[in-house]
């Protein structure tokens, strides 16, 4: 029991070794070896595929076909990346993804936070019905709204632009956003808003200068959740923006693979690397926020 409580000490895994002092010491180092092996196995499974892809993105097609795929490149073909950038039209797809994602995020946040505030802080008849109606939207799969929206965008002659994506992402992202924001507003004591009304502030003023600033952290969380949902969407992207010059990153990659994937291995690997690399930069900067945000979004959704 004594040994066990010792293993509970802070900064475990680096528990000070005291050779020869206790019979438990040997057992502990066996245990440490097993832990190290488990971590190594986990990292090989999760990280090695990404490394494998990276080394193969630097090989010529000839080298890829004739040497073991795990060997390091003989000469580093960085020109695969320029080839991927040009034939994959990555500049266009990245621009389209940004143009579709950022306005959607902006609208989702502005509309969703205000709606969450109205539904949670303000007091009015029928707000529960409205809240439930919006929450019901969380369960509706994209397929259920796909065909009418396609017809509408077609009739409105919007199909040649990215507007269908922006509109759809905004509407489809609202339910989860409203739900998450309502939960965050619930945690703020209502007295704060009552006090501000006594001081003579109207509700719009209360929202702008008290409500919104108080949930600023939550807004970042919600924005990250929505960013990944939109950035990684495929269904709406291939339905509403299937023209080559409107493709987002996901749709563009799919088309690129269909056209060149069986010939130009290096550039395809390079295109995947560029796609993953962009996300990796964001992830390195914000990983703890992203992890917490996505987990929170799941529990609440």
């Amino acid at each position: 029991m004594l040994l066990d409580t010792e293993a509970q000490a802070p900064a475990p895994g680096r528990a000070p070794a005291r050779p020869g002092r206790r019979p438990g010491a040997a057992r502990r180092s066996v245990r440490r070896l097993l832990v190290a092996l488990a971590i190594a196995a986990l990292l090989v499974v999760e990280v090695y595929p990404l490394f494998w892809m990276f080394i193969n993105s630097l090989k010529s097609s000839n080298e890829f076909l004739n040497t073991p795929s795990w060997s390091l490149p003989v000469d580093y073909r960085w020109d695969n990346y320029t080839a991927a950038w040009e034939t994959g039209q990555l500049a266009t797809t990245i621009r389209n993804s940004v143009v579709a994602t950022l306005p959607s995020l902006f609208f989702i946040i502005v509309l969703g936070v205000a709606a969450g505030f109205t539904l949670e802080v303000m007091v009015w008849k029928g707000r529960n019905t409205v809240l439930l109606t919006i929450l019901a939207g969380i369960m509706v799969p994209g397929q259920m709204i796909l065909l009418p929206l396609f017809t509408i965008y077609f009739e409105l002659h919007l199909t040649g632009s990215l507007w269908p994506l922006i509109i759809t992402y905004t509407g489809h992202g609202l339910p989860l956003t409203v739900f998450m924001m309502a939960t965050y507003f619930r945690a703020i004591p209502r007295e704060i808003f009552e006090a501000s009304t006594i001081d003579g502030a109207g509700m719009i003023r209360s929202f702008r200068s008290i409500g919104f600033p108080m949930v600023r952290n939550a807004v970042l969380t919600v924005a990250l959740v929505q960013f990944f949902l939109i950035w990684n969407d495929l269904l709406f992207a291939i339905t509403f923006a299937n023209r080559r010059d409107l493709n987002t990153i996901q749709a563009g990659l799919l088309n690129f693979s269909g056209q060149y994937g069986s010939l130009d291995y290096g550039p395809l690997f390079a295109a995947i690397c560029i796609t993953i690399g962009g996300i990796l930069v964001l992830y390195l900067a914000l990983n703890q926020r992203i992890i917490q945000g996505l987990a929170a979004g799941a529990v609440k959704g």
Binding site: F107, A114, A115, T118, M122, G137, L147, L149, M203
Partner: peptide, 26 residues
């Protein structure tokens, strides 16, 4: 004030319109 109809309309209205047009109607 907490039930100010004009504020409700301004804050909730846009979200409700977009939600109705993109989700409910479809």
């Amino acid at each position: 004030v907490l039930g100010d109809r004009r504020a409700i309309a301004i804050l909730l209205g846009p979200a409700l319109v977009v939600y109705t047009l993109v989700m409910l109607v479809p």
